[in-house]
Amino acid sequence: MRRFVTPTIVLAVFGLLVGGLYRYVFDEVSEADIANYLRSAVHGAGLTLAVWGVHLYFTSRSSAWIRRWPFIIELLVRTITTACIVVIVAIGLEAILYPYGVAVRWIVGDLPKIMGISLALSFVITAVYELIRMIGGRTLVNVVLGRYRRPTREERVLLFLDLVGSTTLAEGMGELRVQELLTRFFFDIDEAIVVHGGEVHAYVGDEVIVTWPVKTGRPARRCLDCVFAIQDRLAELADRYQKEFGVIPAFRAGLHAGPVVISECGDSRRQVAYFGDTVNVTARLQQHCKEAGRPLLVSGELLRLLPSADDLAIEPFGATQLRGRAALVEVFAVDRRAAAAA
């Protein structure tokens, strides 16, 4: 839930400002005192957070039932639900903040305006949130600023992580059932990625590609901790997966760091794409996990970015020729010491 703390605070402050602005624009000058401005600010924050709460519900696993319906039905249900919540919260806050009770004049005059503003805010919040979910927060900012209109070279940490045995699972479970498993798998590991500062670049079949910027003087340990957190999360959910799918998902992962060329490409469908040897090496590291018999392999380039840590078990594989690549790569298997001992 930590991933929602920052946007909740930002939206609360935004709601306070909108509430104060509403008082300034629509109310009479005689009512423009500090107490009324504070009431309107609290009203605005409450309504904004109510809209945000509805949005969070409809983007959580609890609302999976509605995502099985046609999009137009989902949109209609979300709109009606938001409108009802806005009315309830608006009237409730009016009764609390103004002890003389809810006036008919307020219901006839102000409530329709408040509903209109709240629904407009709901649309904006949903649009921005969905854009962030589609291309990532940092990438969205860079796209808006035009950073990737021309190829840009950046230092990045890349993680390629895929589900083990998806082809075999598809033969035994069927493609539709495996897709449900993949959807659940990607959903369950997402919080670990976000909490550790990662940003999902793409889902490719049964694989997810995650990226972190490499900043000077900043250790890259969080990418390793992300993989360990994913392991812990899957262990927590093992019984649920076994009960629902008859299998406990496992993964193989490769981590590498180096220069990446990032650019917008395409025309009818624009996409931010990553190019370069770093991408290829990371993909090959992930594929080499099967041959090495290890769930996580990292390159020497990444390992040199890590701070020294006594809790890590590092097993060197030496200079390795990865499939499809002539140059040798230093490869290491990394695990937590307790897990390695077990």
Rank of each mutant, 00 (worst) to 15 (best):
A338S: 12
A342M: 00
R304K: 15
L111I: 04
R147H: 12
F275C: 00
L140K: 02
E154A: 06
L158D: 06
R2S: 12
L75T: 01
E171S: 13
E154S: 09
F58D: 00
A95M: 15
D267T: 13
L17G: 10
E236H: 08
R336L: 15
R61D: 09
Y37A: 03
H196W: 04
V178Q: 03
I107V: 14
M1N: 04
G136R: 05
G146Q: 05
Q321F: 09
Y203M: 04
T320I: 10
G293K: 00
P219E: 15
V128N: 04
D206H: 01
N142A: 14
R221H: 13
V331E: 09
R294H: 03
R39K: 15
L176K: 10
L49N: 04
I117V: 13
A220H: 02
R61G: 02
R252W: 03
E155Q: 13
G172V: 11
F228Q: 11
V10L: 11
E330I: 06
E31Y: 10
C265F: 13
A338Q: 13
R325T: 05
L285K: 10
V89I: 12
R177T: 14
D277T: 06
H201Q: 12
L163Q: 03
F185M: 00
G197D: 10
N36M: 09
S118V: 05
R269Q: 08
R304C: 07
L97V: 03
Y148P: 08
A90T: 05
G324C: 00
A338L: 11
T59W: 02
T6Y: 13
A41F: 06
R138T: 08
G109V: 04
L182P: 02
G300N: 14
S30T: 10
I91V: 15
I132E: 08
R177L: 06
M115Y: 04
L97E: 11
